[in-house]
Simulated scan of single mutants.
Amino acid sequence: MKTEEWMEPRFRPASTKGWRGYWFRVIFRHHEPDERRFDVILLGVILVSVITALLDSVALLHAQYGKIFYAIEWVFTIAFTLEYFLRLSLVRRPMRYVLSFYGLIDLMAALPTYISLFVVGADHLLVIRVLRILRVFRILEMVEYSNEGSELIRALYASRRKIGMFVLFVLLITVVFGAVMYLVEGPEHGFSSIPHAMYWAIVTMATVGFGDITPQTPLGQFITSIMILIGYGIIAVPTGIFGAQLVQAGIQRRAEGAAVATIAETGVACARCGEEHHYAGARFCQRCGERLGEGET
């Protein structure tokens, strides 16, 4: 499955007529005023729901307004549930929507309140609804940002093997230095096990340094200094890999743009409508559908 399809799947309407056709257009399209109005209202409801969940997690506010927050949350949950089943009734293949990225997010947006009836504290998972704000990229038609986001994902995918080898190398360093520090410092200095020492190695190599575990011996402090220097050195590695892939993608995009521009200037004009701008290898006019080259002598 392509990355673009995973992030924003295309769904076909179950019916193009009647109320199902109308609501499919309003919910799944994002161009007309009523379609944008629905999405903006949905985003507002999501934001208010998330803010309610955040405020309800504050002990003082929960003690004073807990019942109000609970009632409001059930109103939102019922609204999201109805919207979810409405979406299922509008698409031709409901299971494709259920298993899609946004379908799973929509489902998880409604489930926490129901789960809280059986599991104490599950209602705090309501903040997952903030993920539905991802729809804002489609609502605002931020084509430039959407294209750049797709380019970032493609760059990550193209460099996945190099980044994977880098992560494996970091894990090997973590295991080796964790074992060494366990032998050098020992449980009496907080290094109670090799996994615990590996945790220290990760924190040290990331140059975070929480300070909950610190070496006490001169040899341990010397090893720590080496780990910190290694950390500074390896931080730039994935950035360089990813940056090089982005540069390559940018060069390729500019080359494709230049090729399209050249074809647009020297391309064959349509005999019917006169359109001169066509993509490379196009055999039909992108405006009227006329076969290119017909009518010429």
Rank of each mutant, 00 (worst) to 15 (best):
F222H: 12
E188V: 13
H196C: 01
G211C: 11
L171C: 14
P218G: 12
Y182T: 03
E188S: 15
I202Y: 08
F177R: 03
Q216R: 13
P187E: 11
I173C: 10
I194C: 04
M198S: 05
G209S: 11
V176M: 12
M198D: 03
V170I: 11
F169P: 00
T174N: 09
H196T: 14
G220D: 11
A201D: 01
V176W: 05
F222W: 13
M205E: 05
W200V: 04
I223A: 06
P218Q: 12
Q216V: 15
I223G: 06
A206N: 14
T224E: 13
L219W: 07
F169K: 00
V167N: 10
P218T: 07
T224S: 10
H196D: 13
V184G: 02
V203E: 14
Q216I: 09
P195S: 04
I213D: 08
P187D: 04
L168V: 10
T217R: 02
S192N: 11
F177D: 03
Y199W: 12
A206H: 07
S193M: 01
V167W: 08
S192Y: 07
G178H: 10
M181H: 07
G220Q: 11
G220A: 09
V176L: 15
F191N: 00
T224F: 04
L183Q: 10
L219K: 04
V176N: 12
Q221C: 05
Q216M: 13
D212K: 07
A179W: 09
Y199G: 00
T207R: 05
V167Q: 09
H189Q: 13
E188R: 14
F222L: 15
T204H: 00
V208D: 04
G186H: 04
Y199V: 12
T174L: 11
E188D: 14
F222A: 15
P215Q: 11
G209I: 06
F222M: 13
V184W: 00
H189P: 08
S193A: 10
T207M: 09
L183E: 06
I223L: 15
E185D: 10
A179H: 09
T204P: 02
A197W: 03
F177G: 06
T207A: 08
A201M: 13
Q216W: 05
A179T: 10
T174C: 07
L183I: 08
F191K: 01
A179G: 15
V176H: 05
T224K: 10
V167H: 02
I173F: 06
V175K: 02
V184N: 11
T204K: 01
L172G: 07
M198Y: 08
F169A: 13
V176F: 14
A179V: 03
E188W: 08
I173E: 00
T214S: 13
P187A: 07
F222Q: 08
A206T: 15
V180A: 12
L172I: 14
I213P: 00
G190W: 03
M181K: 01
L183P: 00
T224Y: 10
V167K: 02
G186N: 05
G220S: 03
M198H: 08
